[in-house]
Design a protein around this nucleic acid. Structure first.
Length: 797
RNA sequence: GCCCGGGUGGCGGAACUGGCAAACGCGCACGACUCAAAAUCGUGUGCCGCAAGGCUUGUGGGUUCGACUCCCACCCCGGGCACCA
């Protein structure tokens, strides 16, 4: 009798041995390269979350499986270590963020190792180390030198609680993504990355990647590309004109007024002609005070003020129309001004109703028709033009182009994407490698001075300016290198900059001459499988794609998408179905589960919960099920005999199913099959060693510890994880008996047991003569008999 | 409002290309072991019915010999976007 399965003992034992033998380092194998990557974690003080474990287990199973198939798998792990929580903690306690971050990394590393993930620890990286952020700064300079990083005064999102500006992507429904504080607008001089330069590629190249459809759609919607035209409206008695962007040039003749955004520069240009300037100024001031949230979601009630004394000329029908300023028009989209067509745009309709402006229908869904149906709301569909002079009767689609040409406008593509604001008025981030001369002009810090170190002599209490502004060390360093009067940039970079390129660093993590060698990049990248939460859909994925496209444009790399295949792990909720959170006290700590059940059980359980991408609720009781399965797998040791004569149908079906399921990351059904296989083996008096070994090899990617231990106990040499994955024999997949159900008018009445491949005619005969069938067809006319060999017979009466 | 994703036993979930709905697991019931309990193992388990049989994949309709799967309409849940001209 073997001793009892003791996960604690064997997991500690093998963790140590693997570490000593560095079994997980990327090894040379015969097959092709494969880069399997997890979204690296932010090492938070609360430690590893069961959600991390889910994604990491999936990629670990995939990596181990692929190694057993002979692939050279690159599977690294690192730390997205800069960020606000550590700094906020420093404000509270005075402990330096570096200390708390290093401490958190230690915990994460210990927890991850304990779970048996096969990361190549020789490649570990941390974004907060100077060796790493040297290259983050190098990327900044690459962008800067190519005109893709620029400083500009802009109306930016400000979070008063985090005391920093935010990128648009970090503003969720008008509030800070991190802390939920309402975001206000501020005019500040900030650094931007010109991601808009890549908006077309960012949309078009989505065709090349194997990503979840919803993620692709989210990216596409965020970029929000739309095709339209820019038309110019002249101002009466003025040299100025107002260009507008429209996707509906066909409705030009229905434009009965115009609207410009409160920030529009034209308003001040036209000041001398505006007769109600005071009122206009008041309106602008009021709308600037409003937060983005108030301007958009709070009330959809339209507000605005007419610019009295100003008239624009509709270039279609030469009619003079009024011009309004209203905040339902956004300054940063299109040209910041619109032609308003109340009959065919719901927002314009509402505005026109409120201000008593004419509503003129110019699109009708029927033609020719003496009268169009009377509108009760804006008609936004397409149709035929009416009331549009020489264009009457033309279809919308055709009219768009014709009218644009007629008024001398031009076709234009516009996107919602805005440039990426990367300045942060915070300490714990990569310093922006810029210095200012005594006149205040920015200069790139020469590469020889990189890494441009984060100073240590700062206070963490927020003062409204960047903590680096207090650093004597930093100012002295600048004076020393650049001369008197020179000053440093005191903002740091958004942490998303650090995580936009880390997958490059893993291929060559100790290189201090380049961010990674060109040869290794081409050999190992792009990432073949990338797994992480769906919540990073817009932010991280968009930025990472942008960085890759920058490198591609400047000839550093030959590919232009970083992640070929992307899969998300779903959220793991608490037992009550709510979100796991510290404040609710319902967070499951992986350590506790490992203590209680073992790492192999935890891995298995999380994969068995359901499909990887779906949200799933935690249920500790269910872990007992997978643990029982492992106990059974363990006990099978007692049944081993040297040779057996059993026909291994289920075993070979399992080799096929498990292999195919891992390939598609359907790990829940792969585990079901492993259970079926174990049940099958356990139902016998004895099991051949060959069969048992095969079963263990199938289980090895899922449960590295128990399989390694048994492998040793049954006297096999070497690590089980260096073996090849079993292959199945086609001829062993078929059962010796095919069970073919017989239906009478769609209801199963009998089952035929025949040898597989029995001919149609034979099946038909057997079915019709079957005693259980006779009862149902007796005295009835048989209209048809459908026979699908090995599958079913359906007698239609 | 718009765009995705999803509704299957008491629960988590399975089901190839339209072919025996409910694999696998949890729970539950009964049994074995035990002085007893836990653990473990075995058997059973969609619902109604003593049975024969009937019913069942959110609701209603349709296509088909046959629908969880395809089509139409509706209801509910989850996620994303939200005055983007």
């Amino acid at each position: 009798m073997e001793e009892k399965y003791n996960p604690k003992h064997i997991e500690e034992k093998w963790q140590k041995i693997w570490e000593e033998q560095r079994i997980n380092a990327t090894q040379k194998r015969q097959g092709s390269k494969l880069y399997v990557l997890d979204m690296f974690p932010y090492p938070s003080g609360s430690g590893l979350h069961v959600g991390h474990v889910e994604g990491y287990t999936a990629t670990d199973i995939y990596s181990r499986f692929k190694r057993m198939k002979g692939c050279n798998v690159l599977h690294p792990m690192g730390w997205d270590a800069f960020g606000l929580p550590a700094e906020n903690y420093a404000i509270k306690t005075g402990i330096h963020p570096r200390e708390t971050t290093e401490e958190a990394i230690k915990t994460f590393r210990r927890q991850i190792k304990r779970l048996g993930f096969s990361y190549d620890w020789d490649r570990e990286i941390g974004t907060h180390t100077p060796e790493y952020y040297k290259w983050t700064q190098w990327f900044f300079l690459l962008l800067y030198k190519n005109g893709l990083a620029y400083k500009a005064k802009a109306n930016v999102n400000w979070c008063s609680s985090c005391q920093t500006v935010l990128a648009n992507e970090q503003v969720v429904q008008g509030a800070c993504e991190r802390c939920g504080t309402k975001v206000s607008q501020k005019d500040l001089d900030q650094w931007f990355f010109k991601i808009t330069d890549f908006s077309n590629e960012l949309v078009d190249d989505l065709k090349e990647v194997d990503w979840p459809e919803s993620t692709v759609l989210n990216q596409r919607n965020w970029i929000g590309r739309s095709a339209g035209a820019v038309l110019k409206f002249k101002i009466r008695n003025s040299k100025f004109e107002i260009p507008v962007f429209t996707t509906r040039a066909d409705t030009l003749f229905g434009a009965t007024y115009m609207v410009v955004a409160p920030e529009h520069e034209l308003i001040s240009n036209l000041k001398p002609q505006i007769t109600n300037w005071e009122e206009v100024e008041k309106y602008i001031a009021k709308s600037r005070e409003k937060t983005e949230l108030e301007r958009t979601t709070e009330t959809k009630e339209k507000t605005g003020v007419e610019l009295k004394g100003i008239k624009a000329i509709n270039p279609g029908n030469k009619e003079e129309i009024p011009v309004f300023v209203a905040d339902y028009v956004l300054a940063h989209y299109g040209t910041g001004a619109i032609m308003a067509v109340p009959a065919h745009d719901q927002r314009d309709w509402e505005f026109a109703q409120k201000f008593g402006l004419p509503i003129r229908q110019v699109i009708c869904d029927r033609y020719p028709e003496p009268t169009c149906p009377i509108l009760k709301e804006a008609y936004t569909g397409f149709g035929y033009l009416v009331g549009s002079g020489q264009f009457d009767g033309i279809k919308s689609g055709e009219a768009k182009q014709k009218i644009t040409e007629f008024v001398g406008g031009e076709m234009k593509i516009t996107t919602k994407l805005r440039d990426w604001l990367i300045s942060r008025q915070r300490y714990w981030g990569a310093p922006i490698p810029i210095v200012y001369d005594p006149k205040g002009n920015p200069h790139a810090i020469p590469e020889e001075h990189l890494p441009w170190l984060l100073p240590t002599d700062v206070e963490f209490k927020p003062t409204g300016t960047s903590p680096l502004a207090q650093s004597k060390e930093l100012f002295l360093r600048v004076e020393h290198i650049f001369g008197k009067g020179w000053t440093p940039e005191v903002d740091t970079m958004d942490t998303f900059v650090c995580s936009s390129w880390y997958y490059f660093r893993f291929v060559d993590p100790r290189n201090n001459k380049e961010f990674a060698s060109k040869e290794l990049i081409e050999k190992l990248l792009p990432v073949d499988l990338y797994v992480g939460g769906a919540e990073h859909t817009v932010l991280h994925l968009m930025y990472a794609r942008f960085f890759t496209k920058v490198l591609h444009r400047f000839g550093y790399i030959s590919f232009n998408e970083p992640f070929l295949r992307l899969r998300h792990q779903g959220m793991i909720q608490a037992e009550d179905g709510r979100k796991m959170s510290k404040s609710l006290g319902n967070v499951v700590n992986p350590d506790t589960i490992v203590e209680q059940f073992g790492a192999d059980s935890l891995r298995l359980y999380e994969m068995f919960m359901g499909p990887l991408a779906e949200a799933k609720a935690w249920n500790t009781q269910n872990i007992a099920g997978v643990r029982r399965f492992l106990e059974r797998a363990w006990r099978l040791q007692n049944k081993i005999v040297k040779e057996g004569s059993h026909k291994e149908t289920v075993l070979h079906q399992s080799i096929k199913k498990v292999g195919e399921d891992i390939e598609e990351l359907k790990l829940n059904t792969a585990i079901s099959q492993l259970m079926v296989c174990a049940n099958d083996l356990d139902s016998r008096e004895s099991v051949s060693k060959e069969a048992y070994k095969t079963f263990l090899l199938l289980l090895a990617p899922f449960c590295p510890f128990i399989t390694e231990e048994i492998w040793e106990r049954i006297g096999e040499g070497g690590s089980i994880h260096n073996q090849l994955f079993p292959t199945y024999k086609e001829e062993l997949l078929l059962e010796s008996v095919a069970r073919v159900p017989v239906q009478v008018s769609g209801k199963v009445r009998a089952v035929l047991e025949v040898s597989p491949g029995t001919a149609k005619e034979k099946l038909r005969d057997l079915a019709l003569r079957h005693e259980k069938v006779a009862k149902w067809i007796h005295g009835k006319e048989i209209k048809d008999v459908v026979v699908i060999p090995d599958r079913l017979v359906n007698i239609v009466v």
